[in-house]
Simulated scan of single mutants.
Amino acid sequence: MDRAREVAIREAKEARENAEREARSRADAEISLSESQALFSTLFRRAPSVLILSSLQDGRIRDVNEGFVETSGWTAAEAVGKTLTELDAWSHQADRNRLKELVADSNLPNYVEIQLRKKNREFVHLLASADVLMVGGEPCLLAQGVDITEQKRAQEALAVHQKELEARVEESGEQLKASIARLEDQERLVAVGTLAAGIAHQINNPVRAIATIAELSLLEKDGQRADSVVRAMERILEEARRCGQ
Rank of each mutant, 00 (worst) to 15 (best):
L51G: 00
F40E: 00
S36N: 15
E30A: 12
S55E: 06
G59E: 14
L56Q: 12
L56W: 14
I61W: 01
R45F: 10
V64T: 05
S34N: 11
G73N: 10
D28V: 09
G67W: 00
L43D: 04
W74D: 01
I31P: 03
L53K: 05
S55K: 07
S32E: 06
R60H: 05
S49D: 02
I31R: 09
I61M: 03
S36L: 02
R60Q: 11
W74I: 10
A29P: 06
G67D: 00
I52R: 00
G59P: 15
V50L: 06
D63W: 02
D63T: 04
Q37D: 11
S49N: 07
I31T: 11
R60N: 15
V69Y: 06
D63R: 08
Q57H: 15
E35R: 13
I52G: 00
T75L: 13
S36C: 06
E35K: 08
A38P: 07
R45W: 04
S34M: 09
I52H: 01
L51M: 12
F44A: 05
L51H: 04
F40T: 06
A29V: 13
R62G: 02
Q57G: 14
L39R: 09
P48V: 08
V69E: 12
I31D: 03
L39P: 07
D58E: 11
D28T: 09
R62F: 04
I52L: 01
L43E: 03
R62Y: 02
